[in-house]
């Protein structure tokens, strides 16, 4: 059984939790062999939403999902840049019925301690 744990934060608390704390916990989960994939995301300003209608990909600035749309799945993909990520996202089948939010994953900033 796989579970996806989604982290929700409001803007004020976006940076409240220090990155090294997150990294430590992730490492514990890796050691226990229970973490399949986990990433931190850039703020919502960096999001692009893709909808496919009549075979045409429509792009929107920001997270555009309507509030009645609920998270139904996720793909963690490797892409060269946003255009390639959008091409991949445009092919995700439920994009024809709902919307796919494309968010860049960011590196945790761990400072000098680990370098």
């Amino acid at each position: 059984m796989k579970y996806l744990c989604l982290v929700y934060l409001d803007r004020e608390n976006w940076s409240a939790c220090p990155d090294p704390v997150c990294a430590d916990y992730a490492q514990k989960l890796v050691d226990r062999q229970v973490l399949l994939a986990g990433e931190a995301l850039h703020p919502v300003d960096s999001a692009t939403t893709v909808r496919v209608r009549n075979g045409q990909a429509q792009l929107y600035d920001g997270p555009f999902a309507e509030t009645k749309e609920l998270l139904a799945g996720f793909y963690l993909v490797e892409a060269r840049d946003l255009n390639e990520a959008i091409r991949i996202a445009s092919g995700i089948p439920p994009g024809e019925y709902g919307s796919i939010e494309v968010r860049p994953v960011r590196q945790l900033e761990l400072g000098d301690a680990t370098s």
Partner: peptide, 23 residues
């Protein structure tokens, strides 16, 4: 904000290919 998005989301510095060009 726009510049951060270009950098963070990695909007590429390129002319779109033939398929994407009209849109």
């Amino acid at each position: 904000r726009a510049k951060s998005k270009i950098r963070d989301a990695r909007i590429p510095y390129e002319v779109p290919d033939r398929d994407a060009l009209p849109a």
